[in-house]
Design a protein around this nucleic acid. Structure first.
Length: 273
DNA sequence: ACTATGCCCTGGGTGC
DNA sequence: TGCACCCAGGGCATAG
């Protein structure tokens, strides 16, 4: 599932392939109906065609295409969305839902097995600002901000880390990895963390995300990069998906529990409550 | 206002 | 081998 490091990898790879290109057409395949709930596919075609991509950015798990005439295309891959660079004439890929074709006949194919992915066209980024806090690897995400947020949270640390208004881009895998790295029990009440623990947690979140970015993301489940290759970070995870296996720090057995409906992995010895 | 829960969806895994 | 069932979880709507 693409979280911040996976989306970051995709955006970095996508950049040289799309920047300053002009959109010639939008191909819409069957099974893409959910993508077009907010607006019709013809609306999207009208909005996109003849526009150029001036810039590309990311906030949390959202991919942001900055188009000419101040139009903005926002994509979210959710659980199983992926993209691949193809050409206009390539056959439809498996699970391909839409294809954005450029005037040089290259194209972005958007695939999605479970159809949870979303696209939207907006005129400014207000829609993201209202639902997202600072990006977890940005300067805005720091000890002061995290402290102010955790203090007033009436939930577990794990639930707080999954809250995109607190740590935009952190998902289930990196929330668990960060808690393990900071030696904090994910069940612990967020508001009960000591100053030192919050400092450690903030550092751990950034370190865990940056390490994964340098490994081109974690390929557990369906994540693939723009070229269809897996990341390398799945061999580096400390707890996620390792229930029953020994903790790499203290050799105790990793446990799996559920917190706010999400599978949560932790070491009961070095992440005491 | 807040937090928790169910839902969307499909492929892969498990157990009978 | 077949088939029913369960699980994975991001973000949203809804319930409490």
């Amino acid at each position: 599932m693409p979280e911040l490091p996976e989306v970051e990898t995709i955006v970095k790879d996508l950049f040289p392939n799309v920047i300053n290109k002009n959109i010639a057409s939008l191909k819409v395949f069957s099974g893409s109906e959910r993508l077009f709930i907010k607006h019709s596919s013809s609306y999207f075609k009208k909005q996109l065609i003849h526009h150029s991509i001036n810039n590309l950015s990311r906030h949390g798990k959202y991919i942001i295409f900055h188009l000419s005439e101040n139009k903005i295309l926002i994509m979210h891959l959710r659980m199983t969305g992926s993209m691949k660079m193809v050409t206009k004439i390539d056959n439809q890929l498996q699970y391909e839902k839409i294809r954005i074709v450029f005037t040089d006949d290259t194209a972005i194919a958007f695939m999605d097995i479970r159809k949870f992915g979303t696209i939207d066209i907006v005129s400014n980024l207000d829609v993201l600002k209202t639902k997202l806090g600072p990006d977890a690897i940005s300067e805005g995400f720091n000890v002061e901000f995290l402290t102010s947020q955790l203090k007033r949270k009436q939930s577990s640390v794990k639930a707080a880390l999954l809250d995109q208004k607190i740590a935009a881009g952190v998902g289930n895998i990196y929330a668990d990895e960060a808690c393990w790295d900071a030696k904090i029990n994910p069940c612990k009440s967020a508001s009960s963390l000591q100053k030192k623990q919050i400092q450690q947690l903030c550092n751990s979140i950034k370190n865990v995300l940056q390490k994964s970015i340098s490994n081109r993301g974690t390929s557990i489940n369906n994540y693939m990069d723009l070229a269809g290759n897996q990341g390398y970070h799945q061999t580096k995870v400390a707890v996620y998906g390792r229930n029953g296996e020994p903790c790499i720090r203290c050799k105790a057995t990793i446990k799996k529990i559920r917190i706010v409906g999400r599978g949560t992995f932790y070491c009961p010895r070095c992440q005491k409550k």
